[in-house]
Design a protein around this nucleic acid. Structure first.
Lengths: 106, 106
DNA sequence: ATTACATATGAATAATAATTCATATAAAGC
DNA sequence: GCTTTATATGAATTATTATTCATATGTAAT
């Protein structure tokens, strides 16, 4: 593993580079939810969602607190909203059609 | 692949979740460089850097232009500076020691 | 048109990460 | 303490991504 930037950013971005975790984040934008709520909403297995939420927790991109038998997960909105704003802006600029982003050759 | 947020963000974050690419970006923060300059600076193989720069190009996180026999790569500073600012801020808040980020349990 | 230098590409291998499944732990009510 | 519900965990399998190596392409100078 390299030093500097890599060290700081690698885990952070790795955490976000997974469709299941991004889908979970998308759900958590709506409201805090339990594991099963997310799993049902996404049509995925409970244990898979649990594994992935753990990854997000370790990056501090979500937080959790227990509520009876359930555990409620909440989005770290401070970081995530700022982040999504940038990504959406980047996408709007470079991938206007949503699908493939053309690369301009010069 | 899931829709929505995932669709937009997945490639973007995947592109950034690789130590070699992050190290290359770190070099490009200093100044625009050719493939060999980056490869030498990082002590990596030319073809590996070339492959990774291609990935960054496809995400529009860098641009390139030819200069004689060389091809000079430049950072998309607009997106990257904003992005790094957020990540650094997040790291400062949650991983003050730089190493492992503690997860607070509640 | 041949050579040297710079970069790119494809395909194989190696490395890493994700998902699944079986099972363990935790909380709450009876 | 037993049962039910909710979540977590570990290990095996599967899938994805990176790297390497050999080679091809592109540019410029002689």
């Amino acid at each position: 593993m390299k030093k500097g930037l890599s060290q700081i950013c690698y885990k952070f971005f790795s955490c976000l580079s997974n469709p299941t975790r991004l889908a979970a984040i998308e759900k958590l934008i709506e409201k805090p939810m339990s594991v099963n709520e997310i799993a049902n909403a996404l049509g995925e297995e409970q244990s898979m969602i649990s594994h992935n939420l753990k990854t997000l927790l370790e990056c501090n991109l979500i937080t959790s607190n227990r509520l009876g038998k359930k555990r409620i997960y909440s989005l770290n909105t401070e970081t995530m909203e700022a982040l999504l704003k940038i990504v959406k802006n980047h996408a709007k600029k470079y991938c206007p059609k949503g699908g493939k982003c053309p690369v301009k050759e010069d």
